[in-house]
Design a protein around this nucleic acid. Structure first.
Length: 415
DNA sequence: CTTAATGATTAACC
DNA sequence: GGTTAATCATTAAG
C-alpha cells in the first residue's frame, strides 16, 4: 500500500511525462516513433535504412509474440529463446515495464488484507481444544477427554470407554494430520511451481516481486479454503464421536451398590431437609467416587421421585433408617472413629426421620424436627452446613406433594 | 419382548 | 447458581 509511487510524481495521469525517465522508451522511440510523430521526420535515428530495418524487426517480434501460442511447445520454446536473444528485447521489455507501471496503479487497490475468517478461527480453536490439532500424542487426547467430561466428570471405571474414544480420536487426528500435510505439501509445491513459472516469465515480461507475493497469497487463500473444509469435516467427525462416546446419557451406568447406599443413607437421615451443602456433597462424592454434579443429580432425582410417590419409598426409608440406627448404636462403643461408616450418633435421633416415612399426608410432620437437626449427619459430616435455603429446613420441601394416587394405599401403609 | 428403575438433561423458576 | 418438574435414554428386571 505504500510503494510504487508513480514515476511522474504529482501527475497522476502521467501521460508523456513518464517517458522522459524511461531509457527503454527512448530506445523504442528511437526506432519506432508514434505514428502521429512520423511526419516530423526521423530525427534521432541513426540512419534511415537502419530505422526501416528496426521497424521491420519490431513488427517481426510482435508478430512472433502474437502467434507464439498457436505453435507447438517445442516450436514455442525455440522461438522464445530466439526472442530472448533478440537485440530488441531489452527495449521491448522496458516498454512492457512502462505499461505495467501505469496499469499497475489501477489494480493496486483491488485487494489488501483479508480479515482473518472468524469461522476458521473458531474451527481452529475447537480442534485445538479437542486435541486434534496442537501438539502430538497423549496429552492432547487426554485433555480433550477431561475437557469433555468436565461437567459430568468420569469415574475410574469408565476408562474402558475412554480408551475406545481415545483410539477413535487419534484415528481422526491421524487422518486430519496426513490430509493437512498433504494439502500443505501440495500448496508449497504449487507455489514453487508458480514461482518458477513467474521467474521464467520474468525474463520476457516484467514481474514485480509484489506481484509474485500477491500470486502466492492467492494460492494460499485457495488452499486454505480447502483446509477450512477439512477442518470443518474434522470438527463434525469429532462432534459425532463425542456425542457417541461421551454423552453420558447414552452411556449411562448405574452407580455402584455401595454408592447408592451412601447416598440413600444420607438422604433418609436428612429426610426433613435433604439438601446437602456443598461440603456434604463433596464428601458424598468422594465416598461414592462420583462427581459433585452426579451427587446433585442424584439428590434432585431422589427428592422429586420421593415426593411424587412417598408410599413407594416407605420400605426403603425404613431400611435406611434402621441401618442408620444400628450403625449409630454400634458406634456408641467407639465414638471417635472417623471412617466412612459414620461415627458417634444417637439411636434416638438417628431414627428420627423414620417417622417421616409415614407422614400424616398434610405436610405437618416437619414440626417433629424443628429442633433436632439430625445429629447423626452432623457427626457423620462434622463440617456440614445446612443448605442456604433455610426456608426448607422446617421440612416444607415436600409440603405440596400430591399423594401418589387415590388407589395406591398399599397394605404396608397402615403399618 | 415390555416395563420399571435410574442417571442425565432441559427449561422455567427464584 | 441451585431447584423443580418433565423428559430423554439407557440399564435392569420381569
Amino acid at each position: 500500500m505504500l510503494q510504487q509511487q508513480p514515476l511522474t510524481g504529482n501527475r497522476p495521469n502521467g501521460r508523456g511525462l513518464g517517458m522522459n525517465t524511461h531509457p527503454g522508451l527512448h530506445a523504442l522511440n528511437a526506432v519506432h516513433p508514434p505514428s502521429q510523430h512520423r511526419s516530423e521526420g526521423e530525427t534521432g535515428l541513426e540512419g534511415s535504412e537502419n530505422g526501416l530495418e528496426s521497424r521491420r524487426d519490431i513488427g517481426d517480434i510482435l508478430q512472433q509474440i502474437m502467434t507464439i501460442t498457436d505453435q507447438s511447445l517445442d516450436e514455442a520454446q525455440a522461438k522464445k529463446h530466439a526472442l530472448n536473444c533478440h537485440r530488441m528485447k531489452p527495449a521491448l521489455f522496458s516498454v512492457l515495464c512502462e505499461i505495467k507501471e501505469k496499469t499497475g496503479l489501477s489494480m493496486r487497490s483491488a485487494q489488501e488484507e483479508e480479515p482473518q475468517d472468524p469461522q476458521l478461527v473458531r474451527l481452529d480453536n475447537m480442534l485445538l481444544a479437542e486435541g486434534v490439532a496442537g501438539p502430538e500424542k497423549g496429552g492432547g487426547a487426554a485433555a480433550a477427554v477431561s475437557a469433555a467430561t468436565s461437567s459430568g466428570g468420569m469415574s475410574p471405571d469408565s476408562s474402558l470407554e475412554h480408551s475406545d474414544y481415545k483410539s477413535k480420536l487419534s484415528q481422526i487426528r491421524n487422518i486430519y494430520h496426513t490430509e493437512l500435510e498433504k494439502y500443505e505439501q501440495a500448496c508449497s509445491e504449487f507455489t514453487t511451481h508458480v514461482m518458477n513459472l513467474l521467474r521464467e516469465q520474468s525474463r520476457t515480461r516484467p514481474v514485480s516481486p509484489r506481484e509474485i507475493e500477491r500470486m502466492v497469497a492467492i494460492i494460499h487463500r485457495k488452499f486454505s479454503s480447502i483446509q477450512t473444509q477439512l477442518k470443518q469435516s474434522t470438527c463434525e467427525a469429532v462432534m459425532i464421536l463425542r456425542s457417541r462416546f461421551l454423552d453420558a446419557r447414552r452411556k449411562r451406568r448405574n452407580f455402584s451398590k455401595q454408592a447408592t447406599e451412601v447416598l440413600n443413607e444420607y438422604f433418609y437421615s436428612h429426610l426433613s431437609n435433604p439438601y446437602p451443602s456443598e461440603e456434604a456433597k463433596e464428601e458424598l462424592a468422594k465416598q461414592c467416587s462420583i462427581t459433585l454434579s452426579q451427587v446433585s443429580n442424584w439428590f434432585g432425582n431422589k427428592r422429586i421421585r420421593y415426593k411424587k410417590n412417598i408410599s413407594k419409598f416407605q420400605e426403603e426409608a425404613n431400611i435406611y433408617a434402621m441401618k442408620t440406627a444400628i450403625g449409630a448404636t454400634q458406634n456408641e462403643d467407639s465414638p471417635h472413629t472417623p471412617n466412612s461408616t459414620g461415627s458417634g450418633s444417637f439411636s434416638l435421633s438417628g431414627s428420627a426421620d423414620l417417622f417421616l416415612g409415614a407422614p400424616p399426608m398434610n405436610g405437618e410432620q416437619a414440626a417433629y424436627h424443628m429442633g433436632a437437626q439430625d445429629p447423626v449427619a452432623q457427626s457423620r459430616f462434622p463440617d456440614r452446613l445446612y443448605s442456604p435455603r433455610e426456608s426448607r429446613t422446617n421440612g416444607s420441601w415436600q409440603e405440596q406433594a400430591t399423594p401418589p394416587s387415590p388407589g395406591s394405599d398399599h397394605s404396608e401403609n397402615s403399618n
